[in-house]
Design a binder for these strands. Sequence first.
DNA 1: TTGACATATATCCATACTGCATGTAACTTG
DNA 2: CAAGTTACATGCAGTATGGATATATGTCAA
Lengths: 241, 241
Amino acid sequence: MPSSLLANDLGAYPSPHLAVDIVLFTMNHNVLKVVTMERTAEPFAGQQVLPGGFVHPGETLDTTAKRVLSEKAGLPELSVEQLYTFSQLGRDPRGWVVSVVYFVLVPYEQLLAAAGELADRGLPAIEAAANDPQMRLVEHGKEVTLGFDHAAIVWTALSRLRGKLDWSSLPFALLPPKFTLLELQQVREAVLGRPLNKPHFRKKWHNKLLPGGARLKPTGLLTSGRRHRPAELYQLEVESK
Amino acid sequence: MPSSLLANDLGAYPSPHLAVDIVLFTMNHNVLKVVTMERTAEPFAGQQVLPGGFVHPGETLDTTAKRVLSEKAGLPELSVEQLYTFSQLGRDPRGWVVSVVYFVLVPYEQLLAAAGELADRGLPAIEAAANDPQMRLVEHGKEVTLGFDHAAIVWTALSRLRGKLDWSSLPFALLPPKFTLLELQQVREAVLGRPLNKPHFRKKWHNKLLPGGARLKPTGLLTSGRRHRPAELYQLEVESK
DNA sequence: TTGACATATATCCATACTGCATGTAACTTG
DNA sequence: CAAGTTACATGCAGTATGGATATATGTCAA
């Protein structure tokens, strides 16, 4: 017969410290970027790390993620999505720390408005070709090394984002509410790390119904002042049905 | 300027208790089942719950999952996959407990061999139609209620399993090493909760190359003693290339 | 021995999606 | 007004999808 589950008193075992780290993606000039911050304390002082913080009593992990996003980047209104929980031994030199990692997408304009100093400094750009398990983080032409195991975490997040491209409406969170089909194509090219065929892309995405029930609808509005023929603006609409 | 990350001493905040719960799927008579155990202690004494346990110092979460699987079901050699981390407040009446949930697939024969008493008792069968957000757990004709938030956890695991059907070789872990195409089809029908077209299914899966680099190859062997025409046995082979 | 039965397996067809080539339209800048 | 750049449309070949239909081959019962 199965032994009783959780028969031990709570508190019988020591618990790890539980933290939340955020992979905050954004996109600027057709390049996918990730928000990092300089660490001031040891360990890894002076290096770039992902924004994060410890879980407080009375918080769910989602709540912690939103609080960290608000405190560190001034972005309180974003929807967050849990990615993975990292628990490798020794991943934090200070002790036993388990990190639940969230990933979040934000249009560059919104990031600028909320935390301009972040973007001024420049953010690490993600360079990762489609069929290449390598990933480089580049800022101002030179490679950035992240502290802790955060480089591996960003790679995991990028893989998940790629997987979500085709069947989730989440990647639209990298774009402003209204966007052209070319802008959408550039987002997908940057995430996938490879070029896409343009006429085919247009046919596929014009008025496309997404699995979530949303539809990509043309608005009738046009771009202007862009030194070429204006393009129609599209937006994501929830299907009434 | 960004404030320092993790500036607080470790230990400044209280930590939740960290547990691992396992959703162990198996399949018998074309029905998808999940392994549960009767809880003997309060809270939820007498109810069925998922196998689980607390993380020990010196363990990664994967290690904990494998230890729990070994201790509670006698299955030490299975590969485990992290599903999601649950942290709703009040999900455990005893206190602040965060659960990292893993899901695992095992062929019914292997489960029988390792923990026959589990299968003798009967396991809750999962009844969930394709486009229906409802899910019922049924054992011996009547609905089973799971303790804690474990019903919601099983639903999350089923959703993930469905999502993995098309692009992962993981669902093959529900089958023995050699199997017929019909058996594979029945696995997929049980997981998806809807029938599939047979001729199309055969064309699609004969010699199919899976994303992971594995290929579904016919072995030349045939079934026998099944009161109808023998079927060819297939197996998953890693592509040398 | 023979025919009913259940499942395996093969063939065919209509439709949709993919990847790509080609051509035309419309705005901005010099 | 010409050049440049991008938007937008159409057509085509190869492949995948979803399904109907027909034939093959074993077991089992009479």
